[in-house]
């Protein structure tokens, strides 16, 4: 699903000149929002993530790319507290996040979405949105029993949710179960829900995966919008076109390590990246799932065949 989308409306100017010194993997940034050091995570002998040093620039859109199994999602999970690293520490806006549970990370203003959309199917779209709001008094079990204590806040949250839903063109679906939305609409809902908490950093795990091309344009605009509103965006993506169009900075991961980073055009034309990692898939969709699947299938077939012969 290679897309030829381009930002339409008055898209923000690409941020440039965010780094300090020569561009090498792990280059310091002038104004980093996340600084990670020596983060490693192994799964039974297999090193999934081994990031020596990386900084994510503030108020910019950073893309995290790399082949399947490069450790992007694992790194995402580590940064958001959904997984625990073997070693390493990292800070978010100067505050150390190592060992902080995921829900606290979210409360600090670092909100994420998931590769496989997690719309809460049997809640209405509006309830999905309301759940995103922070600091709700009525979420305390005892206060919940006394509606007059939270009703006013609830109305404010609802107004905000409706406003966001209108922006994401989901307002007509407000009373429907999230289960009834299309895949792309769920992606939109998940992003809108994340915005309910007024985050500082929005982390999107493959926001375009499985989205109907008709919706990619609007999703793209929404991501650019986030930057306009002063948020920082970090996203994992395979679609090179999209990365080129909207990212201010690209970080390339392979085999758990950061192998290259820099402004999109520089990274894409970096021969080392193309040869060693992008290979012939350059400029194509790197959604490697079918290949990977085939590989695994072959492995099983070989296992069975070898067995037959023996």
């Amino acid at each position: 699903m290679s897309s030829d989308v381009k930002p339409t409306k008055g898209s923000p100017v690409k941020s440039v000149d965010m780094h300090v010194g020569e561009i090498v993997p792990g280059v310091p940034k002038k104004d980093p929002i996340i600084v990670a050091d020596h983060v490693t995570r192994t799964f039974g002998g297999l090193t999934a993530v081994d990031v020596d040093h990386v900084e994510i620039p503030r108020n910019a859109i950073t893309a995290l790319i790399g082949p399947n199994g490069a450790g992007k999602t694992t790194f995402f999970n580590l940064l958001t507290g959904f997984d625990k690293p073997d070693t390493g520490k990292w800070t978010f806006m100067g505050k150390s996040l190592a060992g902080i549970p995921s829900f606290r990370v979210a409360r600090l203003g670092q909100v994420r979405t998931f590769q496989l959309t997690k719309a809460l199917s049997l809640l209405t779209v509006l309830d999905n949105m309301k759940l995103g709001a922070k600091g709700q008094k009525g979420e305390n079990m005892f206060v919940a029993l006394l509606p007059w204590l939270w009703r006013k806040q609830e109305e404010e949250i609802e107004a905000k949710a409706m406003e966001l839903l209108a922006r994401f063109k989901l307002d007509t679906k407000a009373e429907d179960y999230a289960a009834s939305l299309s895949g792309g609409q769920r992606k939109l809902l998940e992003m809108a829900r994340a915005l309910m908490s007024d985050p500082t950093l929005v982390m999107l795990d493959e926001p375009m995966a499985g989205v109907n091309p008709a919706l990619t344009q609007s999703l793209l605009d929404h991501i650019l919008d986030l930057k306009t509103q002063g948020m920082t965006v970090l996203f994992v993506e395979h679609d090179m076109q999209m990365v080129r169009h909207i990212a201010d900075w690209v970080i390339v991961m392979a085999e758990g390590k950061i192998v290259a980073e820099g402004p999109p055009d520089a990274v894409m034309s970096n021969p080392a990246v193309i040869d060693a990692y992008l290979g012939s898939h350059h400029d194509q969709d790197l959604g490697e799932d079918p290949d990977q699947e085939k590989e695994n299938v072959n492995a099983i077939k070989e296992l069975l065949d070898a067995d037959d012969k023996s």
Partner: peptide, 22 residues
């Protein structure tokens, strides 16, 4: 109440609810 909304959200997908700071 909002409390009920959170627990129903947990029933649907607890990671999503966690990602929302609950």
């Amino acid at each position: 109440s909002p409390w009920g909304r959170v627990v129903k959200g947990i029933r649907e997908d607890e990671d999503a609810v966690r990602a929302l700071g609950k």
